[in-house]
Lab assay of single mutants.
Amino acid sequence: NPITQSQFVPLGEVLCCAISDMNTAQIVVTQESLLERLMKHYPGIAIPSEDILYTTLGTLIKERKIYHTGEGYFIVTP
């Protein structure tokens, strides 16, 4: 039996792509809307728990890849 190979993409990278897409579409990015986006637009991805999502978003903020305001999460533009 051949083994199907899937590509590994770090969660942080997927979140940045999803946040960027949602920002472009002017969709408010909350943790809930982000999870919905992942389920709908990234089939096959293991949906992270709320704790993992929260921690990963926190890491992306520390790395200055995203920022959070009262209006949601946004990509940091250079």
Score class of each variant (00 low, 15 high):
Asn1Glu: 04
Asn1Arg: 04
Asn1Leu: 04
Asn1Phe: 06
Pro2Arg: 15
Pro2His: 15
Ile3Val: 12
Ile3Met: 13
Ile3Cys: 06
Ile3Pro: 13
Ile3Asn: 13
Ile3Leu: 12
Ile3Tyr: 15
Thr4Val: 12
Thr4Tyr: 13
Thr4Cys: 12
Thr4Met: 13
Gln5Leu: 11
Gln5Asn: 14
Gln5Lys: 14
Ser6His: 14
Ser6Leu: 08
Ser6Ala: 13
Ser6Gln: 08
Ser6Asn: 15
Ser6Met: 15
Gln7His: 08
Gln7Phe: 14
Phe8His: 11
Phe8Ser: 15
Phe8Cys: 13
Phe8Ile: 10
Phe8Ala: 10
Phe8Pro: 15
Val9Gln: 11
Val9Ala: 14
Val9Cys: 10
Pro10Gln: 10
Pro10Ile: 13
Pro10Ala: 12
Pro10Phe: 09
Pro10Trp: 09
Pro10Gly: 10
Leu11Cys: 02
Leu11Arg: 00
Leu11Trp: 04
Leu11Asp: 04
Gly12Ile: 12
Gly12Met: 15
Gly12His: 12
Glu13Ser: 06
Glu13Gln: 10
Glu13Leu: 03
Glu13Phe: 03
Glu13Gly: 04
Glu13Met: 04
Glu13Thr: 07
Val14Lys: 05
Val14Ser: 05
Val14Arg: 09
Val14Cys: 05
Leu15Ser: 01
Leu15Met: 07
Leu15Tyr: 01
Leu15Lys: 00
Cys16Val: 07
Cys16Glu: 06
Cys16His: 05
Cys17Met: 15
Cys17Leu: 14
Cys17Ile: 07
Cys17Asp: 15
Cys17Arg: 15
Cys17Val: 13
Ala18Met: 15
Ala18His: 04
Ala18Ile: 15
Ala18Leu: 15
Ile19Trp: 00
Ile19Gln: 01
Ile19Cys: 00
Ile19Lys: 01
Ile19Asp: 00
Ser20Tyr: 06
Ser20Cys: 03
Asp21Trp: 04
Asp21Ile: 05
Asp21His: 05
Asp21Met: 05
Met22Asp: 00
Met22Pro: 01
Met22Gly: 01
Met22Asn: 00
Met22Ala: 00
Met22Tyr: 00
Asn23Trp: 02
Asn23Met: 02
Asn23Pro: 00
Asn23Glu: 02
Thr24Gly: 09
Thr24His: 08
Thr24Gln: 11
Thr24Phe: 05
Thr24Trp: 06
Thr24Arg: 13
Ala25Tyr: 04
Ala25Pro: 00
Ala25Thr: 06
Ala25Asn: 12
Gln26Tyr: 02
Gln26Asp: 12
Ile27Pro: 00
Ile27Glu: 08
Ile27Met: 09
Ile27Leu: 09
Ile27Phe: 04
Val28Met: 09
Val28Tyr: 06
Val28Leu: 13
Val28Ser: 11
Val28Gln: 12
Val29Ala: 11
Val29Gly: 01
Val29Thr: 03
Val29Cys: 13
Val29Arg: 00
Thr30Asp: 05
Thr30Asn: 12
Gln31Tyr: 12
Gln31Ile: 08
Gln31Thr: 13
Gln31Trp: 05
Gln31Ala: 10
Glu32Thr: 07
Glu32Asp: 08
Glu32Lys: 11
Glu32Gly: 07
Ser33Thr: 13
Ser33Ile: 07
Ser33His: 02
Ser33Gly: 04
Ser33Asp: 03
Ser33Glu: 02
Ser33Met: 03
Leu34Ser: 00
Leu34Asp: 01
Leu34Gly: 00
Leu34Arg: 01
Leu34Lys: 01
Leu34Glu: 01
Leu34Gln: 02
Leu35Phe: 12
Leu35Thr: 10
Glu36Ser: 09
Glu36Ala: 14
Glu36Gln: 08
Arg37His: 15
Arg37Asp: 04
Arg37Val: 06
Arg37Cys: 04
Arg37Met: 09
Arg37Ala: 08
Arg37Gln: 06
Arg37Asn: 07
Arg37Glu: 06
Leu38Phe: 04
Leu38Gln: 01
Leu38Glu: 01
Leu38Met: 08
Leu38Lys: 00
Met39His: 13
Met39Val: 12
Met39Asp: 13
Met39Pro: 06
Met39Leu: 09
Met39Ile: 10
Met39Trp: 09
Met39Cys: 08
Met39Asn: 11
Lys40Trp: 07
Lys40Arg: 10
Lys40Gln: 09
Lys40Thr: 15
Lys40Pro: 01
Lys40Asp: 14
His41Gln: 11
His41Cys: 11
His41Tyr: 12
His41Leu: 06
Tyr42Trp: 05
Tyr42Phe: 08
Tyr42Ile: 04
Tyr42Ser: 11
Pro43Arg: 07
Pro43Thr: 07
Pro43Gln: 11
Pro43Trp: 04
Gly44Asn: 05
Gly44Cys: 08
Gly44Asp: 11
Gly44Arg: 12
Gly44Pro: 08
Ile45Thr: 14
Ile45Met: 14
Ile45Pro: 03
Ile45Cys: 08
Ile45Gly: 06
Ile45Lys: 05
Ile45Asn: 07
Ile47Gln: 10
Ile47Ser: 05
Ile47Met: 14
Ile47Leu: 12
Ile47Asn: 03
Pro48Lys: 04
Pro48Asn: 04
Pro48Trp: 07
Pro48Gly: 05
Pro48His: 07
Pro48Glu: 09
Pro48Ser: 03
Pro48Asp: 05
Ser49Thr: 13
Ser49Cys: 07
Ser49Ala: 06
Ser49Asn: 14
Ser49Gln: 05
Glu50Gln: 12
Glu50Ile: 14
Glu50Tyr: 10
Glu50Asn: 13
Glu50Trp: 09
Asp51Pro: 10
Asp51Asn: 09
Asp51Leu: 04
Asp51Val: 04
Ile52Ala: 11
Ile52Asp: 14
Ile52Tyr: 09
Ile52Pro: 02
Ile52Trp: 06
Ile52His: 06
Leu53Phe: 03
Leu53Ile: 05
Leu53Pro: 00
Leu53Thr: 02
Leu53Met: 10
Tyr54Ser: 15
Tyr54Gly: 14
Tyr54Thr: 13
Tyr54Ala: 15
Tyr54Glu: 14
Thr55Glu: 11
Thr55Ile: 11
Thr55Arg: 13
Thr55Tyr: 06
Thr56Trp: 05
Thr56Phe: 05
Thr56Glu: 08
Thr56Asn: 05
Leu57Ala: 01
Leu57His: 00
Leu57Arg: 00
Leu57Val: 03
Leu57Pro: 00
Leu57Trp: 00
Leu57Ile: 06
Gly58Phe: 10
Thr59Val: 12
Thr59Asn: 07
Thr59Leu: 12
Thr59Glu: 15
Leu60Glu: 02
Ile61Ser: 05
Ile61Met: 14
Ile61Gln: 08
Ile61Lys: 06
Ile61Val: 14
Lys62Gln: 15
Glu63Lys: 13
Glu63Thr: 08
Glu63Met: 05
Glu63Val: 03
Glu63Ile: 03
Glu63Asn: 07
Glu63Tyr: 02
Glu63Ser: 09
Glu63Arg: 07
Arg64Asp: 13
Arg64Ala: 05
Arg64Cys: 04
Arg64Phe: 03
Arg64Met: 05
Arg64Trp: 01
Lys65Tyr: 03
Lys65Arg: 12
Lys65Met: 08
Lys65Cys: 03
Lys65Asn: 02
Lys65Ile: 04
Lys65Ala: 03
Ile66Trp: 02
Ile66Met: 02
Ile66Asp: 01
Ile66Phe: 00
Ile66Ala: 02
Tyr67Met: 07
Tyr67Leu: 07
Tyr67Gln: 11
Tyr67Trp: 07
Tyr67Arg: 13
Tyr67Cys: 14
His68Gln: 12
His68Cys: 11
His68Met: 12
His68Leu: 10
Thr69Val: 03
Thr69Arg: 07
Thr69Ile: 02
Thr69Gly: 07
Gly70His: 13
Gly70Gln: 13
Gly70Leu: 11
Gly70Pro: 14
Glu71Gln: 14
Glu71Cys: 03
Glu71Asp: 15
Gly72Glu: 11
Gly72Arg: 05
Gly72Pro: 00
Gly72Asp: 07
Gly72Asn: 04
Gly72Val: 01
Gly72Met: 02
Tyr73Thr: 01
Tyr73Leu: 04
Phe74Tyr: 08
Phe74Arg: 12
Phe74Asp: 02
Phe74Gly: 06
Ile75Ser: 12
Ile75Met: 10
Ile75Phe: 08
Ile75Asn: 03
Val76Pro: 04
Val76Ile: 07
Val76Tyr: 06
Val76Phe: 15
Thr77Ala: 08
Thr77Leu: 07
Pro78Glu: 15
Pro78Asn: 14
Pro78Gly: 13
Pro78Leu: 03
Pro78Thr: 04
Pro78His: 03
